[in-house]
């Protein structure tokens, strides 16, 4: 795919959210922290509807920053990001519209400790989605069943284990029926025996057809579920290919270096 042709097509079409085009498009996106730390360099990326992408790379490579730009938790200084036909700018209304379509799961779970599990899930549908309480609670229970944790609905987050909390966080993000799910190192803060339960939940979610971008070190997950694996280093996309090609035939020296480090032991 020619980069300039893609760019021309994007600038020609006003709102490109229809069934043909990509659901997320990054065009020559650049971001700096301060004056000198060039954290994202000329990122060009198209994400198709329903595509499942795993982003990996050494720490400091900008992978978390990349996905945080998608729901405007971080702001980019140069380039264009279009999510489901809406361009990300400083306009508050468009940012709020995008956040309704994009769900995020954090490394530190970030559940609200003063609310019960059920209240954590019904909060956004009621206050942002303007849903009546009963309907919100029904939807919440459905999502809790989906992540297999419905029996804990009345408990408070800090009464649950790490794995359970992360599954609640996934259910909370799903309550708004987002089109895109972002995962920022969801298992990095978990004890080893709890990683499996969260990954299983994510695999089931992936099989359901939702668009997923996942920053993770769990290569087993990538091999099981990903359509595309992206390797980032020093702020740019070094290599992207199918899992098969990525793990078996890495093209770049840097990719080979990285893979040997994380798969070697």
């Amino acid at each position: 795919m020619n980069a300039t042709a893609t760019a021309a097509a994007a600038t020609a079409a006003a709102a490109d959210g229809g069934d043909g085009g990509p659901i997320i498009r990054f065009q020559k996106v650049n971001k700096w922290y301060g004056n000198n730390f060039h954290v994202l360099r000329d990122i060009d990326l198209d994400v198709r509807r329903g595509e499942r992408i795993v982003i990996c790379g050494p720490s400091g490579s900008g992978k978390s920053t990349l996905i945080r730009c998608i729901n405007r938790l971080e702001e980019h200084q140069e380039g264009h990001i279009v999510v489901d036909g809406v361009e990300l700018t400083d306009d508050v209304k468009s940012v709020e519209a995008i956040r309704r379509e994009v769900g995020m799961v954090f490394q530190q779970f970030n559940l609200f400790p003063h609310l019960t599990v059920l209240e954590n899930l019904t909060l956004a549908p009621m206050w942002v989605g303007k849903m009546p309480k009963k309907e919100a609670e029904e939807r919440a229970i459905t999502q809790l069943k989906r992540v297999r944790i419905a029996e804990q609905a009345g408990k408070y987050p800090l009464q649950l284990s790490g794995g359970q909390q992360q599954r609640v966080a996934i259910a909370r993000a799903l309550c708004l029926t987002p089109k895109i799910m972002l995962f920022d190192e969801p298992t990095s803060a978990l004890d080893p025996e709890m990683i499996k339960e969260v990954l299983d939940t994510m695999i089931e979610l992936a099989k359901g057809g939702i668009t997923m971008l996942c920053v993770t070190h769990e290569m087993g997950f990538a091999k099981a579920v990903a359509d595309r694996v992206i390797f980032m280093d020093q702020g740019q996309i070094v290599e992207q290919s199918t899992p098969h090609d990525f793990f078996d035939n890495p093209k770049s020296e840097r990719t080979r270096d990285f893979l040997s480090k994380i798969l070697g032991h």
Binding site: N35, H38, Q77, E239
Partner: peptide
């Protein structure tokens, strides 16, 4: 793979 050299931010 063509590595991109870091540059300074356009707006300080």
């Amino acid at each position: 793979f063509q590595p991109i050299v870091a540059r300074a931010a356009p707006v300080a």
